[in-house]
Amino acid sequence: MNQKTTLAAAIAATALFTLSHGTTALATDKAAAKVDYTKMKPEALAEYLVFESGSFDLEQPTQEGTNGRARLTQDELMQLCTKAARSKKGLDAKTADKIRAMAQATIKYPEGGIKLGDWKKGRDLAWSGFGFRTAHNPDKHGPNNPPGANCYNCHQLATDRTGGDLGPSLTGFGKLRGNSPEMLKYAYDVIYNPHVYFACTYMPRLGANGVLTPEQIADVMAYLFDPESPVNK
C-alpha cells in the first residue's frame, strides 16, 4: 500500500470511529432494553459485560493518558493467550511461533547497546508494586514515586526480602549466568517482552507495555547483573 492510500484508509477509519462513537450512548440504551443474556454465547456476553453493561468506568482516566476502555481492550497477544488459557489443549505450536514473532517485533534496543544502570535504583523498582493502579484508588505517579517493576511479587531475588514464587527464583542471577552480551540481551528481552521466549507467559511485557522506561529497565538489569547487587551476594 502506498503512503497516499494508507493515509486515506486512516482518515476513513477515524471518520468511522468518530461516527460510531458519537452514537454509542443512544445505541447502548436501545441495546440494553433488548439484550437477552441467555441468548448470548459466554464469550459474547463477557465482552458485553465489559464494554456495554455499565459495569466498568470506561471513561476513567489512566496514568498513561488513556482511559478505562483502553485498559480493557485486548490486543492480539492478549486475545491469543486468553484463548490458549481457556483451551484444554493449551497453546498450540503454530500460535506460539506467531506470538514469539509478534513479541520480537515490539522490542526496541537502546542506542549504543544494552547497558547496566544503577542497581540501587533497580532494587527499589524491583521491590515496588506501585503504579498504574486505578479503580477505586488511583496511583499518583510523580518524580519521587515512579511506577515500580513488581519483580518481588513473583520472583525471589536478593534473599533479604521475601519474594513470590509464581515465577522462577532469580537469586544470584548475574553470578550464576555471567554477563556476556548474549545474556544481557536475553535478560533485556525477557524484561521488555518475555513472550519472545515464553509465549503466553504471565510475566508482564514491562517494556512493550510501557510499564518501565528504558532507564528503569537499565536499573533493573543492574540489580540482576551487578556484582555489587544484593541479588549476587
Binding site: L49, R71, L77, T82, P204
Partner: peptide, 21 residues
C-alpha cells in the same frame, strides 16, 4: 448459567498494563 459462564470467560480474560487475568 449464562452469568456463571460469562464469569468464567472473564476469569481468563487477559488485559490492562500487566496482561493479567
Amino acid at each position: 448459567k449464562a452469568m456463571r459462564n460469562a464469569g468464567e470467560v472473564l476469569f481468563y480474560r487477559r488485559s490492562a498494563n500487566l496482561d493479567f487475568n
